[in-house]
């Protein structure tokens, strides 16, 4: 029982991190904080993938010297490359989100969701 709990401790932490992100999106009023919570979710998923690539006692998948080691000697590089893409996607999403927030703030003068919605209703 103890080994299962400790063996999966990193995954438990990742789940908690992701749920913190979802809580943030749902519970915060501020639109910018929602974007930050979104980043927390994507970081949690990135760490989840990176965990899949790790092995105890393994090294970077680079050929040092002449001899080729066994599969167990190298960490799996594929999740890292995948997450490179996911990080780029995350940066792009944050960029688009911030650009939209900038326009929202310029127009309504606030980033609190209820205030923005109130302003919108009084517009129409």
């Amino acid at each position: 029982m103890l080994t299962t709990a400790t063996g999966y401790v990193n995954y438990w932490l990742i789940s908690i991190l992701m749920l913190v992100g979802f809580y943030g999106i749902i519970a915060t009023e501020n639109l910018l904080k929602k974007l930050m919570a979104l980043n927390v979710i994507s970081v949690a998923i990135i760490i989840f993938y990176l965990n899949l690539g790790q092995k105890a006692g393994s090294n970077v998948p680079v050929l040092f010297g002449e001899e080729l080691g066994t599969v167990a000697a190298y960490a799996n590089p594929l999740p890292h490359t995948l997450m490179l893409t996911a990080i780029v996607v995350g940066v792009a999403t944050t960029g688009v989100g911030l650009a939209l927030l900038y326009r929202i703030y310029n127009r309504y003068g606030t980033l609190e969701e209820t205030d923005v919605l109130k302003e919108m209703r009084s517009d129409s």
Binding site: M18, I25, K34, S42, V89, R103, I104, V116, M120, S124
Partner: peptide, 24 residues
């Protein structure tokens, strides 16, 4: 326009969360 910006931003939040679920 500005209403659409708010709608687009909310779509961004929901849509990115959805894409994250798919990725997971």
């Amino acid at each position: 326009g500005s209403r659409a910006t708010v709608a687009g931003y909310r779509y961004l939040l929901i849509g990115t969360a959805a894409a994250c679920l798919y990725l997971l």
